[in-house]
């Protein structure tokens, strides 16, 4: 049943996805250079899902969820992991077929496996975003999220973007038949210097788990949260024209600060210093920033506003 070119390493799966989506016409972007909780936070998804301009992008996004750290001991849980993200606007009519093609490309043949689309509505309270779609199951395991964006930053998405998110480690472990993430071959296991996922990330998982849970300076984090929030607000309120009289709204720099605030909130959450009641308030503050950025982005060229 095994196909002859079945991938043998984590990176082969990533490369197969990159090639597949490049072949389907997506711009293959690079990860965003900031700490984010999921691939959706990349401005290539959040901001580009807004406005009327067509868009097609695919990228790997390193993602951080401090509360999921397990010192590298849990077979599936990591505080730092990779997502593969595809976003196409407007969503093409054959998006499901395109997606299934990507599974074939990494060695999952839907004629041998049981691939199912199971209802799962997506919502991001911090981004003020929601969509309808499914989690995709392969033999009872969730391998992707498939979402048609309906709103981002409180704005209706017109046209609608189709978003695909693959949890790379979990998907790769399944394809490669690995039980513990740290045992997964990262590069070709027959290379002269074969490296496992654990060779690369076991130590960092330990270090970050300790820092996230026990060491991060919470006073500093609170201060940074306030700073990011203030800077975001300041950028959003800045005059549209610069000193030379050019109209340059700064949606992206403002959004960077919103991303920062979001990650700082996640770190504070992992340190256990945010109570249940405060939680909602913090999420609301981040959402207000994201909404402001979305509002501003919608006035720009990239959102399809004619000059």
């Amino acid at each position: 049943m095994t196909s002859p070119n079945r991938p043998r390493s984590f990176q082969e799966i990533i490369l197969a996805l990159q090639n597949y989506w490049a072949d389907k016409g997506c711009a293959v972007l690079q990860p965003y250079d900031m700490e984010v909780g999921a691939g959706t936070f990349h401005p290539a998804t959040t901001l580009r899902a807004l406005g009327s301009r067509s868009w097609a992008a695919a990228y790997v996004q390193p993602s951080r969820r401090p509360t999921d750290g397990r010192y590298g001991e849990n077979p599936n849980r990591l505080q730092h992991y990779y997502q593969y993200q595809v976003i196409i606007k407007p969503s093409p009519p054959d998006l499901q077929e395109l997606y299934l093609g990507s599974l074939r490309a990494i060695g999952l043949d839907p004629l041998i496996h049981d691939v199912r689309f199971v209802e799962d509505d997506w919502e991001s309270p911090t981004l003020g975003a929601w969509g309808l779609g499914w989690e995709v199951w392969c033999d009872g395991m969730e391998v992707s999220q498939f979402t048609y964006f309906q709103q981002v930053g409180g704005h209706d998405c017109k046209p609608v973007s189709g978003e695909l998110t693959y949890g790379l480690e979990r998907l790769a472990m399944y394809v490669l038949g690995v039980e513990h993430v740290m045992d997964m071959p990262f590069n070709d296991p027959d290379s002269p210097i074969a490296l496992s996922y654990g060779d690369i990330f076991r130590q960092t998982e330990q270090e970050y788990s300790r820092w996230n849970f026990d060491q991060a300076d919470t006073e500093m984090l609170f201060q940074h949260f306030k700073d990011a929030e203030a800077e975001c607000a300041r950028i959003l309120e800045a005059a549209e024209t610069d000193s030379a009289g050019r109209r340059i709204p700064m949606a992206h720099p403002a959004y960077d600060q919103a991303i920062k605030a979001s990650h700082l909130f996640n770190l504070l959450d992992a340190r256990g210093v945010i109570s249940v009641t405060e939680r909602q308030a913090y999420i609301g503050r981040v959402r207000a920033l994201a909404k402001g950025c979305a509002d501003l982005f919608l006035t720009t060229d990239a959102a399809g506003v004619a000059r």
Binding site: P90, S91, G131, L132, Y148, Q150, P159, V160, G162
Partner: peptide
């Protein structure tokens, strides 16, 4: 939901 560039609403496309 809506999908693509259309305005029709259905449960999924």
């Amino acid at each position: 939901m809506r999908w693509g560039a259309g305005s029709l609403r259905w449960v999924r496309p």
